[in-house]
């Protein structure tokens, strides 16, 4: 490699030499019940379903939640696009909802994220909205769990000022830890994993909360319920 490569190797040896000088328990000290992190710290109302809890928290973070059904969500989406005056909606061409979007959204409003970002930057940075699917949602915090990748790139949920996310109720998990365990990521991690809780925000000026810092100003969740809505 180059000069900085060998300097890095020298630094590495020196750092490890110092670390190995220290007296320690190389087996570690053990970690007790991580599950303590699962227990809610602030009391939650009893008798709430997972869906109700998700909605309550998501709304408290300023996300808009539209409860809908597998057949009805395209209608809701159209109404939303109209209400917000969206001219350019970006979507992933390989996404599981691509065909439905193609059939629903007027062609002149729908833009596919079908090239490398480098070739799309001017258009994506000028778009009004992006729509993505979600892997799951977390009831305890009202968060969306996204796994951006080949089908739906990372910037789709980040650059346009309005992010619309489709979430299936049956995909909800109780907590982040439950989701981590369920998906077995410790064995195989995707290149990017993300929880999104509400629109982007900042309180950097005089602690005054403002939505729409660098990411979306608005987050709208289309929460798709399965047949018997209150079974969960």
């Amino acid at each position: 490699m180059n000069v900085s490569g060998s300097a890095s190797q020298r630094a590495r040896s020196a750092i490890f030499a110092r670390l190995h000088e220290a007296r320690r328990e190389p087996a570690g000290v053990g970690v007790p019940e991580v599950d303590a992190a699962l227990a809610p710290l602030v009391a939650e109302p009893a008798g709430e379903s997972r869906r109700q809890r998700f909605i309550r928290h998501a709304r408290s973070w300023q996300a808009e939640v539209i409860e809908t059904t597998p057949l009805d969500w395209p209608v809701q989406l159209l109404a939303l696009l109209r209400a917000r005056g969206v001219r350019q909606l970006f979507a992933g061409p390989g996404s599981p909802i691509a065909a439905t979007l193609q059939a629903t959204v007027p062609a002149d409003q729908l833009r596919w994220f079908d090239r490398e970002l480098a070739a799309l930057k001017p258009e994506l940075f000028a778009a009004d909205a992006g729509i993505t699917t979600t892997l799951s949602g977390i009831a305890a915090s009202g968060s969306l769990l996204l796994q951006p990748g080949v089908e739906e790139p990372r910037t789709l949920s980040l650059v346009p000022p309005l992010h619309i996310a489709l979430l299936h109720e049956q995909a909800l998990h109780d907590s982040l830890l439950a989701a981590i365990r369920h998906y077995g990521w410790a064995q195989a991690m995707p290149s990017n994993l993300l929880t999104i809780t509400g629109p982007s925000k900042t309180a950097d000026i005089q602690r005054l909360l403002v939505y729409g810092a660098h990411g979306p100003r608005e987050l709208v969740i289309l929460l798709v319920q399965n047949g018997d809505a209150d079974a969960r």
């Binding site: 710290l41 602030v42 973070w61 994220f113 090239r115 490398e116 970002l117 799309l120 915090s141 968060s143 951006p148 990748g149 080949v150 790139p153 990372r154 910037t155 982040l176 991690m189 995707p190 290149s191 990017n192 994993l193 993300l194 929880t195 999104i196 809780t197 509400g198 629109p199 982007s200 925000k201 309180a203 990411g215």
Partner: peptide, 24 residues
């Protein structure tokens, strides 16, 4: 830190862009 139960983003990055990915 800020008395929030959670932040807007928890972003977990595992390696650079993989084949077929269009950003990252």
């Amino acid at each position: 830190a800020t008395g929030q139960a959670i932040t807007t983003y928890l972003n977990v990055l595992t390696g650079p862009r993989r084949p077929g990915e269009k950003d990252g």
